[in-house]
Amino acid sequence: MLGAAVVAFLLALAPLAARAVSSPAEMLPDRKQELRAEAIGHQLRCLVCQNESVEESDADLARDLRRIIRTRVQAGDTDQQVIDWMVARYGDFVRLKPPFDAQTLVLWFAPALALGAGAVAVLFARRRRPAPPAPLSAEERRRLARLIEP
């Protein structure tokens, strides 16, 4: 029953994945090259819509960039060369996955920093907590019993 629900859910997602394929007219005749071009396009941001990859976007500029990726792949550029070509013009923003360098150090370590800050906060909170009160003495216990007696 649960298995069927999972399958139905995955099937519902299928059209989303299929949408990523560009129109047949744009595709390279060589299947291997086309797959490489698509993989590169998925790593590059469409500068117009900013939250879609070049491969998924309908924007004019994204179409132009798709065409350039394919021309360069056909000309024999490596994946890295194509990405560098884009970065030279549009900066690191064009990469959907930011590079690991001095500028993005804080970005990449943010989760670790947040965790560290949390740990420090917990430590401090623990230290501040006052020591638990001493247990009642025999005299106090007798008094308490008298007070709560019905």
Partner: peptide, 13 residues
């Protein structure tokens, strides 16, 4: 016309 020079400039709109 092809917008190719614009891409060399990094024009995005």
């Amino acid at each position: 016309d092809p917008g190719r020079v614009a891409i060399d400039f990094g024009v995005y709109g």
